[in-house]
């Protein structure tokens, strides 16, 4: 009863606390988003500088254009493999790092986290230098180790450009996965694990029956977040390959950027970003549904 009265008294104060943040987010996120969707129904190119209403024409046009479909295909490859590697490597590292026998865990974690701390531009630049076909250390290491016979062109080759970017994205983001998974591994009650071992479960069974149910929710969250971040990522591809060679590593974010700021085809770019927004919104909705559901329980 007391609580109810108190909450009612401060009905408007809550809004006041939130208002400043709300104004910023509304003006820099909500308004541009709506504006962007409006723009997607108008045509504006370098030849027709006036905005002209064309309805859904640009959507139709875009969904049938080869360059857009190519970007969409690259986006799927880029996102799928980035998330797969980020999660698999991060998960494995978290399992290793969270063992009781590991001493100085904080130091190990701090070192492994460094790629995530390094600004994306710098990380991408350093990798671009390591990928260098003449003076790159990566080719040198791989040749010495006997994995390859001659230097690979990495970012300069149509078949390797996207993979090169996926490697950098994985390198930068897997440390964050470790942090998430480690935190959720800590929520697994030690007594349950011990009980399972006493009952004669081997480590795989123990993992499957005791550990997994406790961390499954976090894993789902992490995979969704990684998917959203990778769909939104722009810097890696921009610095490493610029979408090239040709359009071999052109993902949607790169496509949008080029349409807008190189071809000055703002209408088309707005249409493509609306489509990217819809894709991201689908994953976001799944994420938000599961995270709010988790909050209530």
């Amino acid at each position: 009863m007391k609580i109810k009265r108190k909450k009612l008294n401060h009905k408007n104060s809550g809004m006041l606390f939130i208002l400043p943040a709300l104004l910023v987010v509304a003006s820099v996120m909500l308004f541009p988003l709506v504006y962007n969707i409006v723009l997607s129904f108008f045509e504006k190119t370098i030849y027709s500088p006036e905005w002209k209403f064309v309805g859904l024409e640009q959507y139709q046009h875009l969904l049938m254009s080869d360059s857009f479909l190519n970007a969409l295909k690259n986006t799927i490859v880029w996102t799928f493999f980035s998330v797969l590697f980020q999660f698999a490597i991060g998960f494995a590292c978290a399992l290793v790092l969270s063992q009781d026998r590991v001493k100085f865990r904080g130091v190990w974690r701090c070192l492994i986290m460094l790629p995530w701390v390094l600004p994306a531009v710098i990380g991408s630049m350093v990798w671009k230098w390591m990928y260098h076909s003449d003076f790159g250390i990566l080719n040198q290491i791989l040749i010495t180790a006997g994995f390859i016979d001659k230097a690979l062109p990495w970012t300069g080759s149509k078949s390797l450009a996207l993979i090169s970017a996926i490697i950098v994205n994985t390198w930068k983001m897997f440390p964050l996965v470790i942090l998430y998974i480690e935190a959720s591994l800590q929520s697994v009650p030690k007594s349950l694990e011990d009980a399972a071992v006493v009952d004669g479960a081997n480590s795989w069974n123990c993992f499957k029956v005791v550990t997994w149910p406790h961390i499954a929710g976090t894993c789902k969250t992490v995979v969704l977040l990684l998917t959203i971040w990778t769909l939104n990522a722009f810097t890696f591809i921009f610095v490493l390959t610029g979408g090239g060679p040709g359009t071999s590593s052109q993902v949607l974010s790169m496509f949008i950027y080029k349409e807008a700021f190189q071809n000055f085809n703002f209408g088309n770019a707005a249409t493509a970003s609306s489509i990217l927004f819809i894709i991201v919104a689908i994953f976001s909705t799944i994420y938000i549904k599961s995270s709010i559901g988790g909050d209530e329980s």
Partner: peptide, 30 residues
């Protein structure tokens, strides 16, 4: 606090966290 529209604002915020910068850049630039 509890107030009208709190849940909607909270969900809006979650969406904001996911918003691709590349989607915002064109309208903001213009």
């Amino acid at each position: 606090y509890r107030f009208k529209g709190k849940k909607a604002l909270y969900v809006g915020l979650l969406y904001g966290q996911m918003m691709p910068a590349v989607v915002l850049i064109i309208p903001i630039y213009l």
